[in-house]
């Protein structure tokens, strides 16, 4: 179900970046920029405007998706969405931080991000909590297959195997 091609997505990013007038409110509001001077949301948009392309440096994954920039942007540029889009492009390229691959694998096989350990199960029983109905993992598999997540996971594995 690849609804948008990467080119469409880049077009969309460019389009939504256009109203930006580089005031810097996003950067001034970004908690990540506060501790990581390498990550400036304004520059991410500026790059799109300046070069017309989307550079995937890996730094896009630093975005914590706190939405502060988007909330305050005086031109209503959807910065968080732009970063989500850039990350999707990276993911399609097989460039994904390993922790996210791990998370996606867990979801794929359990439907959850943190599968209950024996200890938690015991704890739930001790607390008198009910056993929660388990999601059908086949359904998750189907969604992964049909929405491209599986492809991306495979592509990452290939990228991993390739000698650098």
């Amino acid at each position: 179900m690849e609804r948008t091609t990467d080119a469409d997505r880049i077009n969309e990013i460019q389009h939504s970046a256009q109203p930006c007038f580089q005031c810097g409110i996003c950067a001034a509001s970004c908690p990540i920029f506060r501790v990581a001077p390498d990550f400036n949301p304004r520059m991410a948009v500026d790059e799109v405007l300046r070069t017309g392309t989307v550079a995937m440096t890996g730094r896009e994954w630093f975005c914590a998706y706190c939405l502060m920039c988007e909330e305050r942007c005086p031109m209503e540029v959807a910065l968080s969405e732009i970063l989500i889009d850039i990350k999707n492009l990276s993911a399609n390229d097989g460039k994904v931080p390993p922790s996210i691959i791990e998370m996606m694998d867990v979801i794929r096989f359990t439907g959850k991000v943190s599968h209950a350990s024996k200890r938690t199960e015991k704890k739930r029983r001790e607390l008198g909590l009910p056993e929660l109905p388990k999601p059908d993992v086949d359904e998750v598999q189907t969604i992964f297959e049909m929405t491209g997540a599986l492809d991306r996971l495979m592509r990452f594995r290939e990228a991993e195997v390739e000698p650098e």
Binding site: N88, P133, E139
Partner: peptide
């Protein structure tokens, strides 16, 4: 209680594949 999956997590999953995120949410 219903057999929910992960919501899914709004940053990482959506960043990895926004279609997967949207479909799991819809489920």
């Amino acid at each position: 209680d219903l057999p929910f999956t992960c919501c899914p997590e709004p940053n990482s999953v959506r960043s990895f594949s926004d279609k997967t995120w949207l479909t799991m949410g819809a489920r």
